[in-house]
């Protein structure tokens, strides 16, 4: 199995976010099986949630579809079981805390460990709660945690997050929910520059609002790589995801 820690030592990394079960369960499995051939280094596989607070319309809609397609956490793990027989592509779990609570935190960790999910992103798990309630458990099962930082996160807090991060630091590109398509702004550039200048000891990935070759490559100048979510999902919906991925690396 490829280690995500090793992968995160490189640069120009391309990561893709996909909602599990979108547009169909079968298609999710296909995409995960083939995506490495298109230069994708690792995938964030999203567990769809009925009320995703940090997500814009594209991911909301894909979640509605995925839930309708029967995507439960149990089925999510079934999908992974199948995918694991076909590829050793590193997969990051991304999902909201409530579902992990309902599944049972320890049972969840066990399952992730079994299926070689190495890294978790839980956007509504604040670092304070993580430290108190989840850190030991995740450590016990060898799960790495990636936390978000945003343009409003003060330096002192970034340092705290840096210390707690065991996976990568998820640098949110601008103050917004997912899915906004905007030209690169001066403000954004200053944000990236500030993060780069901090010389963080953990790998960084930039995400939110990355949607084409230009925004991807620009982000790569400041971090280990970038994550594309909503735009990839839009292309999956239009059935030309392959073309989109090719265009990023052309």
């Amino acid at each position: 199995m490829k280690s995500i820690t090793d992968i995160l030592k490189s640069r120009n990394l391309l990561s893709i976010y996909l909602t599990a079960g979108f547009p169909t369960v079968e298609r999710t499995i296909e995409i995960l099986t083939e995506i490495e051939d298109y230069g994708v280094d690792f995938v964030e596989l999203g567990m769809p949630f009925s009320d995703p607070l940090a997500d814009g319309e594209t991911i909301q809609q894909s979640s509605v579809t995925a839930i309708r397609n029967g995507m439960t956490l149990a089925n999510y793990f079934e999908v992974l079981k199948i995918v694991r027989e076909r590829t050793d592509l590193p997969i990051v779990y991304m999902g909201y805390l409530n579902q992990i609570m309902q599944y049972g935190a320890e049972a969840f960790c066990k399952k992730c460990n079994e299926l070689d999910i190495q890294n978790l992103i839980i956007p509504d798990l604040p670092i304070e709660v993580y430290e108190k309630e989840y850190k030991q458990l995740y450590k016990k099962y060898g799960l790495l945690m990636s936390f978000l930082i945003t343009p409003t996160t003060p330096e002192e807090r970034i340092r705290k997050i840096e210390a707690l991060t065991t996976g990568f630091i998820y640098v949110v590109s601008s103050s917004s929910i997912t899915g906004k398509k905007r030209k690169i702004t001066k403000k954004q550039q200053r944000h990236y520059e500030k993060i780069r200048a901090m010389n963080l000891s953990k790998p960084t990935m930039i995400g939110f609002g990355i949607y084409d070759k230009e925004t991807y490559e620009f982000a790569c100048r400041y971090a280990n790589g970038a994550i594309i979510g909503s735009e990839f999902i839009r292309y999956v919906a239009k059935e030309n995801a392959a073309q989109f991925l090719t265009s990023l690396k052309s």
Binding site: D124, P126, T150, S176
Partner: peptide, 11 residues
């Protein structure tokens, strides 16, 4: 209770 919020709302 508590505050289970995404980092974007932290400040």
């Amino acid at each position: 209770g508590g505050a289970y919020i995404p980092e974007m709302l932290h400040q």
